[in-house]
Design a protein around this nucleic acid. Structure first.
Lengths: 68, 68
DNA sequence: GCGAAATGTAAAGGAAACTTGACAAATGCA
DNA sequence: TGCATTTGTCAAGTTTCCTTTACATTTCGC
Protein backbone atom coordinates (compact mmCIF):
# COMPACT_ATOMS: atom_id res chain seq x y z
CA UNK A 1 0.00 0.00 0.00
CA UNK A 2 1.34 3.43 -0.92
CA UNK A 3 1.86 5.97 1.80
CA UNK A 4 3.09 9.48 2.51
CA UNK A 5 5.30 8.71 5.50
CA UNK A 6 8.57 9.71 3.85
CA UNK A 7 7.08 12.96 2.55
CA UNK A 8 5.58 13.88 5.92
CA UNK A 9 8.71 12.90 7.80
CA UNK A 10 10.87 15.12 5.57
CA UNK A 11 8.47 18.02 6.01
CA UNK A 12 9.37 17.88 9.69
CA UNK A 13 13.09 17.61 8.99
CA UNK A 14 13.41 14.22 10.66
CA UNK A 15 15.49 11.26 9.59
CA UNK A 16 14.23 7.67 9.78
CA UNK A 17 16.04 6.98 13.02
CA UNK A 18 14.52 10.00 14.78
CA UNK A 19 11.03 9.14 13.59
CA UNK A 20 11.51 5.51 14.59
CA UNK A 21 12.50 6.52 18.08
CA UNK A 22 9.46 8.77 18.45
CA UNK A 23 7.18 6.02 17.19
CA UNK A 24 8.94 3.43 19.35
CA UNK A 25 9.77 1.11 16.48
CA UNK A 26 13.03 0.20 14.79
CA UNK A 27 14.58 2.25 12.02
CA UNK A 28 14.17 -0.75 9.73
CA UNK A 29 10.45 -0.74 10.34
CA UNK A 30 10.20 2.89 9.25
CA UNK A 31 12.34 2.15 6.21
CA UNK A 32 10.30 -0.92 5.28
CA UNK A 33 7.06 0.99 5.49
CA UNK A 34 8.39 3.93 3.47
CA UNK A 35 9.67 1.65 0.74
CA UNK A 36 6.42 -0.34 0.73
CA UNK A 37 8.04 -3.57 1.83
CA UNK A 38 5.08 -4.21 4.10
CA UNK A 39 2.16 -2.43 5.69
CA UNK A 40 2.18 -1.29 9.30
CA UNK A 41 -0.10 -2.93 11.81
CA UNK A 42 -3.27 -0.97 12.60
CA UNK A 43 -1.70 0.05 15.89
CA UNK A 44 1.40 1.48 14.24
CA UNK A 45 -0.75 3.15 11.57
CA UNK A 46 -2.62 4.92 14.39
CA UNK A 47 0.67 5.97 16.03
CA UNK A 48 1.86 7.41 12.72
CA UNK A 49 -1.51 9.08 12.23
CA UNK A 50 -1.34 10.65 15.69
CA UNK A 51 2.23 11.74 15.19
CA UNK A 52 1.57 13.59 11.96
CA UNK A 53 -1.81 14.85 13.10
CA UNK A 54 -3.59 13.39 10.10
CA UNK A 55 -6.22 10.73 9.50
CA UNK A 56 -4.97 7.28 8.57
CA UNK A 57 -6.75 7.76 5.24
CA UNK A 58 -4.66 10.87 4.51
CA UNK A 59 -1.40 8.99 4.98
CA UNK A 60 -2.06 5.49 3.68
CA UNK A 61 -3.36 5.40 0.15
CA UNK A 62 -5.78 2.62 -0.42
CA UNK A 63 -7.93 1.69 -3.39
CA UNK A 64 -11.48 1.70 -2.17
CA UNK A 65 -13.21 -1.65 -2.63
CA UNK A 66 -16.70 -2.07 -3.94
CA UNK A 67 -19.16 -4.16 -1.93
CA UNK A 68 -22.25 -4.10 -4.03
CA UNK B 1 -8.37 -2.07 20.64
CA UNK B 2 -12.09 -1.53 20.99
CA UNK B 3 -14.20 -1.43 17.87
CA UNK B 4 -17.76 -1.14 16.63
CA UNK B 5 -17.74 -4.01 14.16
CA UNK B 6 -20.37 -6.09 15.96
CA UNK B 7 -22.67 -3.09 16.34
CA UNK B 8 -22.32 -2.08 12.68
CA UNK B 9 -22.69 -5.64 11.47
CA UNK B 10 -25.92 -6.10 13.42
CA UNK B 11 -27.28 -2.82 12.08
CA UNK B 12 -27.11 -4.44 8.66
CA UNK B 13 -28.71 -7.67 9.86
CA UNK B 14 -25.68 -9.78 9.00
CA UNK B 15 -24.21 -12.67 10.94
CA UNK B 16 -20.47 -13.18 11.34
CA UNK B 17 -20.27 -15.74 8.59
CA UNK B 18 -21.96 -13.46 6.06
CA UNK B 19 -19.74 -10.53 6.95
CA UNK B 20 -16.65 -12.75 6.82
CA UNK B 21 -17.55 -13.90 3.34
CA UNK B 22 -18.05 -10.34 2.14
CA UNK B 23 -14.74 -9.28 3.65
CA UNK B 24 -13.03 -12.41 2.32
CA UNK B 25 -11.75 -13.55 5.69
CA UNK B 26 -12.70 -16.46 7.92
CA UNK B 27 -15.58 -16.33 10.38
CA UNK B 28 -13.07 -16.82 13.19
CA UNK B 29 -11.27 -13.68 12.11
CA UNK B 30 -14.47 -11.65 12.36
CA UNK B 31 -15.23 -13.20 15.73
CA UNK B 32 -11.72 -12.58 17.04
CA UNK B 33 -11.83 -8.94 16.03
CA UNK B 34 -15.29 -8.39 17.51
CA UNK B 35 -14.26 -9.94 20.81
CA UNK B 36 -11.00 -7.99 20.82
CA UNK B 37 -8.78 -11.03 20.66
CA UNK B 38 -6.54 -9.21 18.22
CA UNK B 39 -6.51 -6.21 15.92
CA UNK B 40 -7.07 -6.48 12.19
CA UNK B 41 -4.24 -5.73 9.81
CA UNK B 42 -4.35 -2.28 8.23
CA UNK B 43 -5.54 -3.88 5.03
CA UNK B 44 -8.47 -5.61 6.72
CA UNK B 45 -9.26 -2.44 8.67
CA UNK B 46 -9.57 -0.62 5.34
CA UNK B 47 -11.81 -3.37 3.96
CA UNK B 48 -14.07 -3.09 7.01
CA UNK B 49 -14.01 0.67 6.71
CA UNK B 50 -15.00 0.49 3.04
CA UNK B 51 -17.69 -2.04 3.74
CA UNK B 52 -19.43 0.03 6.40
CA UNK B 53 -18.79 3.31 4.59
CA UNK B 54 -17.07 4.85 7.59
CA UNK B 55 -13.60 6.10 8.40
CA UNK B 56 -11.28 3.69 10.19
CA UNK B 57 -11.27 6.14 13.10
CA UNK B 58 -15.06 5.84 13.41
CA UNK B 59 -14.90 2.07 13.76
CA UNK B 60 -11.71 1.38 15.67
CA UNK B 61 -11.46 3.22 18.94
CA UNK B 62 -7.96 4.24 19.77
CA UNK B 63 -6.51 6.33 22.57
CA UNK B 64 -4.70 9.19 20.94
CA UNK B 65 -1.02 9.34 21.85
CA UNK B 66 0.81 12.51 22.77
CA UNK B 67 4.01 13.32 20.93
CA UNK B 68 5.09 16.53 22.56
C1' DG C 1 36.48 13.44 -4.47
C1' DC C 2 36.38 12.24 0.45
C1' DG C 3 34.31 11.07 4.69
C1' DA C 4 30.16 11.04 7.39
C1' DA C 5 25.44 10.53 7.73
C1' DA C 6 21.33 8.52 6.02
C1' DT C 7 19.03 4.89 3.81
C1' DG C 8 18.29 0.13 1.77
C1' DT C 9 18.35 -4.51 2.58
C1' DA C 10 19.37 -9.34 4.13
C1' DA C 11 19.24 -13.01 7.64
C1' DA C 12 17.36 -15.09 11.55
C1' DG C 13 14.18 -15.10 15.20
C1' DG C 14 9.87 -13.76 17.80
C1' DA C 15 5.15 -12.04 17.95
C1' DA C 16 0.80 -11.08 15.91
C1' DA C 17 -2.67 -11.85 12.32
C1' DC C 18 -4.93 -15.16 9.73
C1' DT C 19 -6.26 -20.05 8.13
C1' DT C 20 -9.01 -24.59 8.55
C1' DG C 21 -11.27 -27.89 11.36
C1' DA C 22 -13.69 -29.04 15.25
C1' DC C 23 -16.55 -28.68 19.15
C1' DA C 24 -18.81 -26.24 23.12
C1' DA C 25 -21.74 -22.62 24.64
C1' DA C 26 -25.13 -19.14 23.91
C1' DT C 27 -29.13 -17.28 21.50
C1' DG C 28 -33.46 -17.35 19.54
C1' DC C 29 -37.67 -18.86 17.83
C1' DA C 30 -41.53 -22.25 17.26
C1' DT D 1 -38.73 -27.04 26.20
C1' DG D 2 -36.33 -28.37 22.15
C1' DC D 3 -33.92 -27.71 17.99
C1' DA D 4 -31.40 -24.84 14.76
C1' DT D 5 -28.59 -21.04 14.23
C1' DT D 6 -25.07 -18.24 15.80
C1' DT D 7 -21.08 -17.26 18.32
C1' DG D 8 -16.87 -18.36 21.17
C1' DT D 9 -12.78 -20.74 21.41
C1' DC D 10 -9.04 -24.19 20.97
C1' DA D 11 -5.29 -26.34 18.30
C1' DA D 12 -1.99 -26.38 14.80
C1' DG D 13 -0.10 -24.39 10.82
C1' DT D 14 1.14 -20.32 7.48
C1' DT D 15 2.05 -15.59 6.55
C1' DT D 16 3.00 -10.94 7.81
C1' DC D 17 4.90 -7.59 10.93
C1' DC D 18 8.66 -6.28 13.70
C1' DT D 19 13.17 -7.03 16.07
C1' DT D 20 18.44 -6.98 16.21
C1' DT D 21 22.70 -7.30 13.83
C1' DA D 22 25.28 -6.40 10.05
C1' DC D 23 26.76 -4.58 5.83
C1' DA D 24 26.19 -2.25 1.20
C1' DT D 25 24.63 1.72 -1.13
C1' DT D 26 23.20 6.42 -1.58
C1' DT D 27 23.28 11.25 -0.28
C1' DC D 28 25.40 15.32 1.20
C1' DG D 29 28.50 18.82 3.01
C1' DC D 30 33.24 20.25 2.79
Amino acid sequence: MENRVEELRKQLGLNQEELAKLLKVSRQTVSSIETGKYNPSLELAFAISDFFGKQIEEIFIHEREDFE
